[in-house]
Simulated scan of single mutants.
Amino acid sequence: MRKVMTITDGNLAVSDVNGNILFKVKGSFFTLHDKRVLLDAAGNPLLSMHQKMLSAHRRWEVYRGESSDLLFSVKKSSMLQVRTSLDVFHASNTSEDVCDFKIKGSWFERSCIVYLGDSTNIVAQMHKKHSVQSIVLGKDTFMVTVYPHVDHAFIVALIVILNEINEDRNDMD
């Protein structure tokens, strides 16, 4: 299923190809703990994403709704990267020997692929959509293809975290 994501001034909305809003992301910027909340179309919190302070690999933790029920975490695969590579671990994967999902891509090109574990099995893909709106209004619009049986909120959360990690390139990792 194809989704359209639009990021404007740090706000994010996800709509289907007909323009119906599916998800929104609200954020707490300029706080001690960066936090983003993924909302459904009615404004109900589905996931909250928190950047873990003082982590070596830019770790983010994702919780159910606004609870303390940890679902998964995301971190850079390595400290120094030319192309973006993130590892995703389910909360139950405490050893973190092998990632449950991997994100590979180029934020400069605004594209990425989400893989199942450390395999070649693709679960989602994103690329920048070039349009008059993106050029004239400065709105970044992305096309996201989510494969069958994959949670759309999960993929949106991964792309939000990918965006946050890449927006912070000026900061020390």
Rank of each mutant, 00 (worst) to 15 (best):
M1F: 05
L46I: 15
H127R: 10
A153F: 06
K52L: 13
R59S: 02
K104W: 01
K139P: 08
V37E: 02
H33K: 15
E164G: 03
D173M: 13
K52E: 14
R59K: 08
I113V: 15
N44R: 09
D168S: 15
I135A: 14
V37F: 00
E96Q: 11
D16W: 05
A124F: 13
A56R: 07
T31L: 02
M49A: 00
T145Q: 11
N121W: 00
L39N: 02
S106D: 13
L12T: 12
N166C: 15
S15D: 00
T141K: 12
D87I: 07
I135L: 15
S95T: 15
E109R: 05
K139E: 11
V4I: 15
V132E: 02
E96G: 03
R36N: 05
G117R: 09
I165F: 09
R58F: 01
A91S: 11
S111C: 12
E109W: 00
R64L: 04
I7F: 10
D34H: 10
R64T: 03
K52Y: 00
F29D: 07
A41Q: 13
N11T: 04
L86E: 03
A91L: 08
H130D: 12
M53E: 13
K128T: 05
M79E: 10
H149Q: 12
T6P: 00
F89A: 08
I161R: 12
K35N: 06
N93C: 10
K75V: 04
V74F: 01
V25Q: 06
V82Q: 14
L47M: 04
L158I: 09
V17Q: 14
D87C: 13
L47Y: 00
I21K: 09
D69Y: 06
I103F: 07
R36M: 06
N18D: 12
P148K: 03
T120H: 06
A91G: 11
D9L: 15
K102Q: 14
T6V: 10
P45D: 02
Y115H: 09
P148M: 05
I159Y: 06
M79G: 07
R64I: 00
K128C: 08
Y147Q: 13
K104A: 09
G10D: 09
N11S: 06
N163F: 11
L39T: 07
V88M: 10
D9I: 05
C99T: 11
H57T: 10
